[in-house]
Design a protein around this nucleic acid. Structure first.
Lengths: 155, 155
DNA sequence: ATAATTCTTAATAATTTTTCTAAACAATAT
DNA sequence: ATATTGTTTAGAAAAATTATTAAGAATTAT
């Protein structure tokens, strides 16, 4: 039931990119520095988010990554699904990536007790994460006295 | 966000033990067979549940494991915490195993956006799993036509 | 007592997943 | 052209998960 570093880094990066939305492109190295993320790993993460259509990028001077969807249209749930796969605790209750369990003595009888509980868990998790957009994510960051990072770090 | 095999096996085992509650002790080999679980792995799982005070056991003929708490007093959440650790997606929102994140640029400012979302997720998950007892778990199993296992497998 | 049965413990092996790095390559702006 | 920055692929390193093994200890039946 753990959030991977990958998703954590991805969300932290998106926080920076939401700040810069409609303004400037951010280089991987900028993001990595601002959020204390290994730059190499961040690379793969940003690319996955790009392939998923959330980020755009351009090489060269003044290049970098930028958010290409409005922050209010991207949910935290979407991001985690892209980076970590389905939210469901077990594949047989995933809505976006359903799979029958092999080896489960109940799979044929269609009354697996674990499936029942985990179905509720999946819905609970998705209910929170799909209702939470990058906009809300970012606003909550600004609310209390903003952290010491990156307010002044743009050279 | 995945349930481990360990917890899955543990819950399946507890389903069998709930069936036999107040009646007979079950041998690991019986449970393993009924639920298609590797017996060696099951061993470690049953012992952890024993150390946690949920199961009792006795060696020798007529020995085996039995549930020593009433099924209505054991929640699925408890079981998963024993076998997999905290339910929280990240340690900084765990109620049973809180830990400050090292390396998080927000940890000192106390306004980490990820922490905020994940706090809600933790509560959503715990809300479901802590409200779900082994009794409910078992009843839901009995409801529709019971599976073909272990009705007749007691020699 | 002895033997058969069953749990107990600890070490560790195998596998898979996660996390991260490297290096050659391609696109962009000046 | 050149410097800058993203792109891609492969794969290494580390960690976690999933199991296996084997020697040992407790219990019951005889």
């Amino acid at each position: 039931m753990r959030l991977s570093r990958k998703s954590e880094y991805g969300l932290r990066a998106l926080l920076e990119l939401t700040k810069a939305y409609d303004q400037v492109a951010l280089r991987r190295s900028d993001i990595a520095e601002a959020q204390h993320v290994p730059v190499g790993f961040l690379e793969t993460i940003l690319l996955e988010l790009k392939r998923a259509g959330i980020l755009g990028s351009r090489p060269g001077v003044q290049g970098g990554y930028r958010l290409i969807k409005p922050p209010e249209d991207v949910s935290v749930g979407q991001v985690i699904r892209i980076l970590d796969g389905p939210l469901a605790p077990i594949p047989c209750v995933s809505r976006t990536a359903y799979q029958t369990c092999q080896d489960c003595p109940y799979s044929e009888a269609r009354n697996c007790p674990i499936q029942n509980v985990m179905f509720d868990v999946r819905n609970a998790i998705a209910g929170v994460l799909d209702g939470y957009t990058l906009r809300a994510f970012y606003d909550r960051d600004r609310k209390s006295s903003s952290p010491k990072i990156s307010q002044t770090s743009r050279k």
